Simulated assay, not measured.
Amino acid sequence: MHIAVISGPNTNLYGLDPSGPYGTLTIADIEADCRRRAQALGASLDFAQSNHEGELVDLIQSCRRGGAREADGLVINAGSLSYTSIAIPDALAASGRPAIQVHVSNVFTREAFRHHSPISAVAVGCIIGLGPTGYGMAVEALIRRLTA
C-alpha cells in the first residue's frame, strides 16, 4: 500500500514561529512522523509540499492509477487554498482515490471564511484542529480504511 501526503502553501513554514498557531514541529518533523506511522502499518509514503496551486493539482493527478506517484489514498492539507480552490477538489475527485483532509489549526475558531472548504465535499474524512499530529492520524486512518 502506498499513501501520498500533500501539503500546500506556507506549510513549509511550520515550526519557524513557535508562538503562532502551528506549534514547533517543522514540515520535516511531520513527514518523519507520517513515514514512521505508515511503515508501522506496512505502507510506504510519498510526501510533497508546494506553495503553488497548479503544482498541487499536478501532484494529485500523478496519484491516479498508472501515474508517476500512484497512490492508494491521499492525505491533503491544502493550506489557504482549502478555502479558495476549485481545481484541487476537482483533481481529488478525478483521482479516484480516497482522501483525508487535514487542518492543523481549528479553522472554526478562526475567521469565518475558513469555515467552509470545497475539499471537504470530496474527502472521505477531515481531521481539524489537532495540530501537526493530525497528519499522522490521517495517514493511520486512511491505511486502516483501505485495509478494512
Rank of each mutant, 00 (worst) to 15 (best):
M1L: 12
H2V: 03
H2I: 00
I3G: 02
I3Q: 02
A4L: 10
I6P: 02
S7T: 15
S7V: 12
P9Y: 07
T11V: 15
Y14A: 00
Y14E: 05
Y14G: 06
Y14L: 15
G15F: 00
L16I: 07
D17T: 12
S19G: 11
S19D: 14
S19P: 01
G20N: 09
Y22T: 11
T24S: 08
T24P: 02
T24I: 09
L25W: 04
T26G: 05
T26R: 05
I27F: 07
I27Q: 11
D29G: 13
D29L: 06
I30V: 15
E31T: 02
A32T: 01
A32C: 04
R36N: 05
R37P: 03
R37K: 09
A38T: 05
Q39R: 14
Q39D: 11
A40H: 10
A40S: 14
L45N: 12
A48D: 08
Q49I: 11
S50I: 10
E53M: 02
E55H: 14
L56I: 15
V57E: 02
D58W: 11
Q61K: 04
S62W: 04
S62Y: 06
S62F: 10
S62K: 12
C63M: 08
C63P: 00
R65I: 12
R65M: 10
R69V: 07
R69D: 14
E70F: 09
E70Q: 14
G73P: 14
G73E: 09
L74C: 13
L74M: 15
V75R: 11
V75L: 12
I76D: 07
N77S: 05
A78K: 11
S80N: 14
S82Y: 08
T84R: 14
S85L: 05
S85G: 00
I86T: 13
I86F: 14
A87W: 02
D90Y: 10
S95G: 07
G96Y: 07
G96S: 05
R97P: 13
R97K: 15
R97L: 08
P98F: 06
A99S: 14
I100V: 13
I100R: 03
V104M: 05
V104K: 02
V104Y: 04
V107R: 11
F108N: 04
T109V: 09
R110N: 00
E111F: 07
E111I: 09
E111D: 12
A112H: 13
F113W: 00
H115C: 12
H116M: 06
S117E: 00
P118K: 03
I119A: 01
I119T: 03
I119V: 13
A121S: 08
V122K: 03
A123K: 04
A123S: 14
V124K: 00
C126W: 02
I127K: 06
I127H: 01
I127P: 02
I128E: 02
G131W: 00
P132G: 15
T133Q: 13
G136D: 00
G136N: 05
A138W: 01
A138T: 07
I143G: 14
I143E: 11
R144A: 04
R145F: 12
L146G: 01
L146P: 03
T147D: 12
T147P: 02
A148D: 15
